[in-house]
Structures are given as C-alpha cells and as structure tokens.
C-alpha cells in the first residue's frame, strides 16, 4: 500500500475518533436548557466527521485516479538523502524548545544557530561564531526593546 493510502487510513481513524466523540460522548455534559437550542456544540463537528469519513474513504478505496508524477523526494529511498542531518536538526529544535525558558534566550539561541550550522557542515569558526552571536543579540534587542516582549536573556541562576 502506498504512503498516501496509509496516511488516509490514519486520518480515517482520526475522523472516526473525532466523530465518536462528537456523536456519542460530547453531548452528555450538555446543560438541559442548551438541548432546546437548534444548534449544539457538537453539531458542526458531526457534519465535519461525516465529510472527513467520506473523503478519506475515497482516497483509501482509490475512487479517484490521480496521474502519476515524479515526486520531489522519493520517500521509499529516504536513506539516499541527508536524513541524518534532518533528524538531528529536528532534535535540536526540540532541545531548543525545552531549553529556551530555563537556560535563557541568548545562550540557547546562540547555541542553536551554531549547532545548526555545524550539523549542516559549516566549519568556518571565525565567521560562524560572530554571525550567530550578533544575530542572537540583534533579535533579542528587537523583541525585548522594540516589541516589548519579555524574554529571559540569561540562565535563571545568573539572575537573568
């Protein structure tokens, strides 16, 4: 089975779970006076779940024939591409999300930009370091001073 059908299957199960909630469990907590309304919080989701079921089944059953065209990236041969770099960058983003608050903006952002470039094969330290640090400071200044959104610049234990 091709990837697009697998995805249709996953989306079908999402629609089923969504539909189950909308049709059977959601209205249980509804106040009696709201039940007299012609529209309930679950009305629109009910319609959506049916539409979702129809369209995902149409893909799953292959009702619509699409012409084959060469894909930009052939997912069956992912190993041929720079998969390692992409996965490392994704982990880096997760790490950044987790570090932003505790470690502070300046340290985590500089580290993110430097490590990101390193992952992609950049080794020119004299350019890499100043670019990353300057960009971090400029963005921090813009966000903090111009936009007025508070971001802790330094790790908490340094009093930032």
């Amino acid at each position: 089975m091709a990837l697009d059908r697998w995805i249709a299957l996953i989306l079908l199960s999402i629609c089923l779970a969504y539909g189950y909630t909308a049709w059977f469990t959601m209205d249980a907590g509804l106040a009696p006076f709201m039940k007299r309304n012609p529209i309930w919080p679950s009305t629109f989701p009910k319609v959506l779940s049916i539409l979702g079921l129809i369209s995902s089944c149409a893909i799953l059953l292959g009702l619509e024939k699409a012409e084959e065209k060469p894909a930009e990236i052939n997912y069956r041969r992912l190993g041929d591409y720079h998969l390692g770099q992409a996965l490392l960058l994704l982990w880096l983003m997760v790490a950044y999300a987790l570090c932003l608050r505790p470690v502070g903006f300046i340290v985590s952002t500089s580290a993110f930009l430097i490590l990101g470039s390193l992952i992609l094969g950049e080794r020119k330290w004299p350019i890499l370091l100043p670019v990353a640090v300057t960009a971090t400071l400029v963005v921090w200044f813009l966000v903090q001073q111009v936009l007025g959104i508070y971001m802790r610049p330094l790790p908490g234990f340094w009093g930032g």
């Binding site: 697009d4 999402i14 959506l48 779940s49 979702g52 369209s55 149409a58 893909i59 619509e64 699409a66």
Partner: peptide, 19 residues
Amino acid sequence: TGQVAKALLMTVLGLIMAT
C-alpha cells in the same frame, strides 16, 4: 491537481483542527 479528494480531506482536517 487532479486530486480533489486529498485536497478535500485536508480542508476537512483543517476545519476539524479549528474546532
């Protein structure tokens, strides 16, 4: 392009996420 069902499913998914 020639894949109305996929586009439709994506639209519905977007609507579902909005709820």
